[in-house]
Computed example of a mutant assay.
Amino acid sequence: MRLGLQVSWFSWPGAPGSIGPTFGRIARDAEEAGLSSLWVMDHWFQIRGVGPAELDMLEAYTTLGYAAGLTSRIELGALVSGVTYRHPGLLAKTVTTLDVLSGGRAWLGIGAAWNEEEHRGLGVPFPPLKERFERLEETLRIVGQMWAQDDAPFSGRHYTLQRTLNSPPPIRRPHPPILIGGMGEERTFRLVARYGDACNLFDVGPDRVRAKLAVLAQRCAETGRDPREVRNTVLSRVTLSRTGGERAASGETTQSVGEAVDRLGALAEAGVDDVILGMANPEQREVYELVADLVRQAAPLHRAGR
């Protein structure tokens, strides 16, 4: 099992001046600990469930480009970009640029978008859900065409591109992997089956994750695709301490490495390949000794059916 890290909080003491140095240390420490990937949210305002909208939030791809310059191995992505945030051709170009400058380490994480508040706040159109899914599928088609180095015109219901030129092409072959986020069994899972290299689910517990992945496998079968071709990823939460059971500053109860491994093992048995971790304390450098131990112990875990 591969482990990644998502950073969703930037309001550290001394912000905004402390944000660059602190995030840079997190990127380097995550890579040194052996984490396979580093992710940031793609939002303009802080989201409910994490904090008030007024808290610090960085633009995703600028942030990932900064991380790329400070690291050499860890993979980089947005978890996930709302389809409404960028024109499809510009999104393809942005992720391509990240891939080229990072030496082939970029992911495209994408979804149908949900945060109406930040759209209205910054004057970005927020169409109804049905239209957002239509735009999502067209975006996936456009990105695929551009990454195939096919510069023919594209004409869809929502987007018209006269020339889908993308030079230079991505370094990663055949293209940066496409991760589609969402729990929807009809529209989202059908798009994963048709266009995705990976899905991303919330950690709703091993039993519910297993049930969701069974539906995804069915959607793959309906399109004639082997479900083993899709990497099953889950966004989870862990705050580590040496003994576990402590009360972190965030109010969360910490887990020991052994407790976290047991939890990851249950997710692997449910069919999960990768777990992307959110931590309450990613800025604390001492925690990465525990993260490195967790990475080592999680590595032998394998998705059921592999």
Rank of each mutant, 00 (worst) to 15 (best):
K130N: 11
R141M: 11
A106K: 11
N166M: 02
I74L: 11
G123F: 13
P125I: 09
P88I: 00
T84C: 04
G103S: 07
Y85W: 04
V124A: 08
D99K: 06
A92T: 08
G123R: 11
K93S: 09
G65C: 06
S72T: 13
F154T: 00
P170F: 10
I142M: 05
E137R: 15
L91G: 07
N115T: 04
L136W: 05
G89R: 08
L90W: 02
N115M: 13
A148R: 14
R132P: 06
A92E: 09
D150L: 06
Q162E: 06
P176T: 03
R86K: 06
G144C: 09
R135T: 00
F133V: 02
L79R: 01
W147R: 04
T96K: 03
E117P: 04
Y66M: 11
G144D: 15
L129W: 08
A148K: 13
R141H: 02
P169E: 07
W147L: 04
R73T: 11
L91K: 05
A67F: 03
F133R: 11
K93E: 09
G144Y: 13
T84G: 03
L161E: 01
P169G: 04
S102K: 13
E117Y: 04
P128Y: 12
A78E: 15
S155T: 14
L98G: 13
M146P: 02
S102G: 03
L140H: 12
I110G: 02
T164S: 09
G121D: 02
E117K: 15
E134Y: 03
P128T: 01
F126L: 10
H119C: 03
P177L: 02
T139K: 03
L90I: 13
T71N: 07
L122P: 03
R86E: 08
P169I: 01
Q162A: 11
R132C: 10
P168D: 05
T94L: 08
V83L: 02
L70T: 06
R172Y: 12
D151S: 12
A113G: 11
A112T: 15
R73K: 15
G109P: 10
G77F: 03
L70R: 13
H87Y: 00
L79Q: 10
T139D: 04
F126Y: 15
P177H: 04
E131V: 15
L129C: 00
N166F: 01
E137P: 14
L76Y: 02
